[in-house]
Amino acid sequence: MPLSAYLAVSAILFAIGATGVVIRRNPLVMFMSIELMLNAVNLSFIAFAHFLNSVEGWMFVFLVLTVAAAEVVVGLAIIVSIFRTRHNVDVDELNSLKG
């Protein structure tokens, strides 16, 4: 398969993920959409690394995976803490800050 096929899939996945973050209202689903965006990025890194025959792309993917896991850990902890105070995690209900 040509490089452009991989890039097209990656771009479509990224767009789906970005749309998900914008239109979904549940923070957990939003996090899943962000994961989709990150995996789209990983796909393009690996495709480039394969076609450019260079190793940096592979390395980048490993680091992205680990750091994204750390980010999700913090995100979930924050969501749990907001659930404890409100018993509701819908982001449309999070509206005490605006103006």
Partner: peptide, 27 residues
Amino acid sequence: AESAVKYVLLGAMSSAILLYGMALVYG
């Protein structure tokens, strides 16, 4: 807590966008 949720969601999304840019530059 509300500001933290907003920050982490938008921050994670922004790093995904940044990474996509990095992937393209790498390519």
